[in-house]
């Protein structure tokens, strides 16, 4: 228990101490929010879909949760390169404890990051349909963060060097983001795209956020909850498994 706590705390400390990183990582969502939110706004409105800023805000929140949580898992690569990984691997605690501490730490950091983006959205003019639903939105952020922190750990356990990182970025993280419906509505998509969005767990995370914050959604909230819970178990399980197999 203590081991989980101390490793969780380590992730949090590393996050709060790198202020420059926090600011930098807010830049990208901000760009998406302002440029797309205001740039595509008129077209979106004309098509009869309402305010694009309202629509894209949950997507941008989901995006920062995705990036932050996956990267926290990939942070294993840094631990490996700076050698700290060995210290945790020989410690007399079950590997699963180490894995859970790190995953929860990464998920916490990702949730905080999501909240910061939510605040930015509010400043930019985003208005939730029902303020009382905010805690539920946070709950879905946490769930989404756990899903992708688990995925990040599974990937991080396999990566040996920086080259792999680019590969993962381009062929895993970006597709998950673009196929999630963060930027466009999931209605009336062509067959293949529609299929791909349906197998992307982030679609459900963002859709659930939209449901909670805007009161409109593509999937039923229960389906989203179910898919997120199952993906969380799956990815955290996969992460634990690959973490337990690490050699250093």
């Amino acid at each position: 228990m203590n081991a989980i706590y101390i490793l969780w705390l380590r992730e949090l400390k590393r996050y709060t101490r790198s202020r420059a990183m926090v600011v930098a990582s807010l830049g990208q969502p901000l760009l998406y929010l302002l440029v797309l939110g205001f740039g595509l706004g008129p077209v979106f409105q004309k098509a009869g879909n309402g305010s694009y800023l309202q629509f894209v805000a949950p997507g941008v929140i989901g995006m920062s949760v995705l990036f932050t949580s996956v990267f926290s898992g990939i942070g294993l690569l840094w631990d490996r390169q700076f050698g700290f990984l060995k210290e945790t691997l020989v410690a007399p605690v079950p590997r699963i404890t180490v894995m859970i501490g790190k995953t929860l730490g990464g998920a916490t950091v990702a949730t905080i990051q999501g909240l910061l983006v939510l605040i930015i959205c509010l400043i930019a003019g985003f208005r939730p349909a029902n303020w009382l639903m905010l805690p539920v939105a946070v709950f879905f952020m946490i769930l989404t963060a756990i899903v992708f922190a688990g995925l990040g750990m599974a990937i991080g356990s396999q990566l040996q060097d920086m080259q792999g990182f680019q590969l993962i970025m381009n062929f895993v993280v970006m597709p998950i983001y673009f196929l999630s419906g963060a930027l466009f509505p999931l209605n009336d998509l062509p067959g293949v795209l529609s299929f791909l969005t349906r197998i992307d767990p982030l679609s459900y995370g963002i859709d659930a956020l939209r449901n909670v914050l805007l009161g409109a959604s593509h999937f039923s909230p229960l389906l989203s909850l179910g898919v997120l819970c199952i993906s969380a178990c799956l990815f955290v399980g996969l992460g634990s498994y690959s973490f337990s197999k690490i050699e250093a």
Partner: peptide, 8 residues
């Protein structure tokens, strides 16, 4: 080889 956390 080194095994400290440099950020702590």
């Amino acid at each position: 080889d080194p095994s400290l956390d440099q950020e702590l």
